[in-house]
Nucleic acid binder design. Structure first.
Length: 482
RNA sequence: CGGGCUGUGGCGCAGUUUGGUUAGCGCGCUGCGUUCGGGACGCAGAGGUCCCCGGUUCAAAUCCGGGCAGCCCGACCA
């Protein structure tokens, strides 16, 4: 009954054919993911198909991360998808953390398996069972390995791109001779790979710090996390780097002879980021008209849109594509004349292409083209001769603008508070910064009852705290999380 | 796993309350033509196990029973 009425009233409010972000954020999110052709749900609950446009973004993100991971000295390798169930049980906290969400294979090859096999939810256990073989002496250290893989976690409540049953990620695993070295490496990855990628590639400012014991990775002694604020004020954990201490080393007997000849357990780290970041891009930068991509992650930074099917227009459009490609831009030609101009504009807008170059007869008569800037939704004429230069200048501003906008939004929704009650209030719409002292021993329980959590602990000035810092001197960043 | 909602051409829905011609509408798709600078228009056309199983009935998308699936909201997680 009301369905049609609702739909009709929606139509009047919808901009760009999407539910306005402010009206219904979750719905808007799903529509953008679908309309920007990033991903859609698969046939099995919680699974997803990442479509070419979404995968193109992922590939750019992968490259950005992979370059940084390699610069930090880690090498890529690949470990098996299937893990003996017994491996998971070797580290007590680890199994406790992951048991509820394991997919277990009990039958294969037409018969029941003697030992069930789990589909990896993460690879600490297999990786470390091999580290135990590969590490003998201190000269084998540090061992720095990364893998790009899919993992499976049977989540109770899937959300496309943010929490899917199967997702793609990168997981790094390292072993070191000393605790200090392991900690330094976990932090190096955290800052040089994760925070740098989030901020300079994704253009999403992040809050950094370490997790409370309650929020820590199962099996870690310390978890560093970067948390972004999404467009609804909620927090998204975008990447974590863990210091594992000797927990897994003891569980998997990863021992080495140190430089004084005595046997010791290695000190380890693990760290990962996932396709969840695609969801973060949508929620951090998207607007009522769709996705807005920073150029570094845009499969097409520029689309040259030929307005009409005329010889001069085609010639000019092709020349522009060639010119922009020569200038090093990822560029596409849109000469789908069977679709109207508006339809094509809307499509690129939804997909978040940062810049469109519109070329039509009217432009050419004036010796110009029109630049349409996605994130501002503005248009400006530019002389035909200066397009590549102008495009370059515009693209240079995009990530900075998106970043600044996100930072301003976060600042407006972050409050320094003095009590848990004030934190509860502020946490409804954004982040609350509360001295750990004021949080107290029962603070996290109180927050949990309000669907809030401590996203991370940091120094009052926002920087990451040294491990030996007195926690009571730190600040808790509190928010609702995805 | 609790609460709510929903399963009908590719997508979004109407029809179910009160069982009854050939299951409709919008979008999309195909063809032709006219259009073309912000989601074009006309004409023609294709496309359906009405989620599944069972039951009631002369007759079921519609009623009854049982399943299954999806979405949203909460607790758990990248």
């Amino acid at each position: 009954m009301h369905a049609s009425a609702d739909r009709a009233s929606n139509q009047t409010q919808r901009k760009g054919g999407l539910t306005p972000r402010a009206d219904d954020f979750p719905r808007w999110y799903q529509e953008v993911v679908a309309e920007a052709t990033l991903a859609e749900t698969g046939p099995v609950r919680g699974t997803m198909v990442i479509r070419p446009w979404g995968y193109g973004i992922w590939e750019l993100l992968q490259r950005a991360l992979d370059d940084r991971i390699k610069a930090a000295g880690a090498e890529n390798a690949y470990f098996p998808l299937f893990i003996p169930e017994s491996f998971l049980k070797l580290e007590a906290e680890h199994v406790e953390g992951f048991a509820p969400e394991l997919a277990v294979v009990t039958h294969a090859g037409g018969k029941q398996l003697e030992e069930p096999v789990v589909v990896r939810p993460t690879s600490e256990t297999v990786v470390n069972s091999f580290f135990a073989k590969w590490i003998q002496g201190y000269r084998d250290l540090p061992l720095l390995v990364n893998q790009w893989a899919n993992v499976v976690r049977w989540e109770l409540r899937p959300r496309i791109l943010l929490r899917t049953t199967e997702f793609l990620w990168q997981e790094g695993h390292t072993a070191h001779a000393t605790e200090d070295e392991a900690r330094a490496y976990a932090l190096r990855i955290f800052h040089d790979v994760y925070v740098d990628t989030m901020e300079s590639v994704c253009a999403v400012p992040v809050v950094t710090g370490h997790k409370t014991a309650r929020e820590r990775f199962a099996g870690a002694i310390r978890t560093w996390s970067c948390e972004g604020m999404m467009g609804d004020g909620k927090a998204l954990q975008m990447g974590t780097s863990h210091e594992l201490g000797q927990n897994f080393a003891r569980a998997f007997s990863i021992q080495f002879t140190n430089d004084t000849g005595t046997l010791d357990f290695v000190w380890q780290t693990s760290w990962g980021v996932s396709t969840r970041l695609l969801g973060a891009l949508v929620m951090a930068h998207g607007d009522d008209f769709g996705l807005r991509l920073p150029p570094a992650l845009a499969p097409a930074e520029v689309v040259v849109l030929a307005v009409r099917d005329e010889p001069d227009v085609r010639t000019a459009a092709n020349a522009l594509v060639a010119e922009l490609a020569a200038a090093g831009r990822r560029v596409r030609l849109d000469d789908r004349f069977h679709l109207g101009f508006g339809r094509r504009s809307v499509e690129w807008e939804r997909k978040g292409v940062p810049l469109r170059v519109e070329v039509g007869p009217r432009d050419l008569a004036e010796g110009q083209v029109t630049l349409a800037i996605r994130h501002l939704r503005t248009k400006a004429p530019v002389p035909l001769t200066g397009v590549a230069t102008e495009a370059e200048q515009v693209l240079d501003t995009v990530a900075r603008d998106l970043s600044a906008e996100a930072a301003a939004f976060r600042a407006a929704r972050t409050a320094d508070v003095a009590t848990v009650e004030e934190a509860v209030e502020a946490g409804r719409t954004g982040f609350a910064r509360l001295p750990v002292r004021a949080l107290g021993p029962d603070g996290e329980d109180r927050l949990a009852r309000e669907s809030l959590s401590v996203r991370c602990l940091q120094r009052p000035d926002g920087t990451v705290a040294q491990t030996d810092t007195d926690e009571a001197s730190l600040t808790a960043v509190i928010g609702r999380s995805y």
